[in-house]
Design a protein around this nucleic acid. Structure first.
Length: 358
DNA sequence: AATCCGGGGGT
DNA sequence: ACCCCAGGATT
């Protein structure tokens, strides 16, 4: 496909230009202090679809709480989710703990250096596998993320749709050709740093790019058109009434979500799907669903919460109940003190401002 | 191959 | 609004 471009590509000079730029400009990041495979691993999972600046405080707190695979393996899953609260994509945290437990049980607590063993762990896909192998173990393995796809598609003028797995594999094959065997850890991280600071999605700073003279996209003036990517479709809106149900002991009803799917195992205030039942039957629905008699009170406000694939349109109501206990295993009555121990999605954290004393 | 899965920030 | 972000699992 782009063999012609690759044939004329000066690999040695490219590596030298890229790496000398990186050695001079590399960012001082918390997970670059050492090459502890566990810490590299945690950082890579957190960084999936998440910006560096967002991850940094979470990384410090997480490593402080779970310094090695042993602390994480022994931890309560709810505590792990609490440490992940607000980061999103919560299955990352559950899969990470599952995989760490596997490392302790089957690999003596040592993160596998074998590509197949590493790649078989929960939550470790092709990117994360390559990142750990290259950064922690100095293996010349590609680590193709969004940055790398953008940078490589511009350099080699690859005009395939990067939303497709096939294109990711093509780029991986190309990286395998041009990666530095002497310092693969720096090579992979250099491309990522370049992608975040110079070779940005919009208005790339080609005039300051250390590898401009190697860039076929720039040579042909198409760098701003690359990479090619199909658009995501619009999110579907789903309306809910959310109930802040309080009893006479000033406790609120919270509910644990199911253990699979959206926001799995996190806690929330009960949500009534009003597009399914109609807003006339809210109190009846709550009784049939949870066995709790409630009386709707004041409308506290509305909230729109946008996910990647759906949009929640939330109407928040205060409600009262005479109940002080429940047999429903999903539910708990908690006071304002206890509620802070449970992992909540950001949308429901925002509702806590409406919780009142008395 | 397409869909599901969070939340934040830049433009 | 729209796009992107150090992606992976499931269908």
């Amino acid at each position: 496909m782009n063999e012609e471009v690759l044939n004329k590509f000066n690999i040695q000079q490219f590596q030298q230009d890229l790496l000398s730029w990186y050695y001079q400009h590399k960012r001082d990041l918390p997970w670059r202090q050492d090459q502890d495979p566990y810490k590299i691993w945690v950082s890579e999972i957190m960084l999936q679809q998440t910006k560096v600046d967002t991850v940094i405080p979470y990384f410090y707190r997480f490593i402080d709480k779970f310094p090695t695979v042993y602390e994480l393996a022994a931890a309560d899953e709810q505590d792990v989710l609490k440490a992940w609260e607000g980061l999103g994509y919560y299955s990352r945290a559950k899969n990470l703990q599952t995989a760490v437990r596997e490392v302790v049980a089957s690999y003596g607590g040592v993160v596998p250096e074998n590509p197949d063993e590493l790649g078989s762990l929960k939550g470790i896909g092709p990117y994360t596998k390559g990142a750990i192998l290259s950064i922690a173990y100095n293996q010349p393995e590609p680590a193709v993320d969004g940055n790398v796809m953008r940078v490589i598609s511009r350099i080699l003028k690859i005009e395939e749709d990067i939303a497709k797995v096939k294109t990711r594999n093509l780029i991986e094959a190309n990286v395998r050709e041009i990666i530095s065997k002497d310092d693969p850890a720096s090579f992979n991280q250099a491309i990522m740093d370049l992608g975040s600071s110079i070779c940005t999605p919009k208005a790339p700073a080609c005039m300051f790019c250390p590898i401009q003279e190697h860039c076929k996209g720039f040579e042909d003036g198409v760098q701003e058109e690359l990479p090619i990517k199909t658009k995501a479709k619009k999110q579907k809106k789903i309306p809910y009434v959310v109930l802040l149900i309080r009893n006479e002991k000033n406790e609120y009803v919270i509910e644990q979500r199911q253990d699979k799917g959206l926001l799995a195992d996190l806690w929330q205030f009960p949500m009534v799907p009003i597009n399914e039942i109609g807003r006339k039957h809210i109190e009846n629905w709550v009784f049939s669903e949870y066995g709790i008699k409630v009386k709707l009170k004041e409308h506290k406000g509305n909230l729109k919460h946008v996910f990647s694939h759906i949009i929640w349109e939330l109407e928040i109501y205060e409600a009262e109940t005479k109940s002080i206990a429940t047999d429903d295993p999903r539910l708990r009555f908690v006071n304002l003190e206890e509620i802070g121990n449970y992992p909540f999605p950001v949308s429901h954290q925002k509702m806590m401002q409406y919780l009142s004393e008395q």
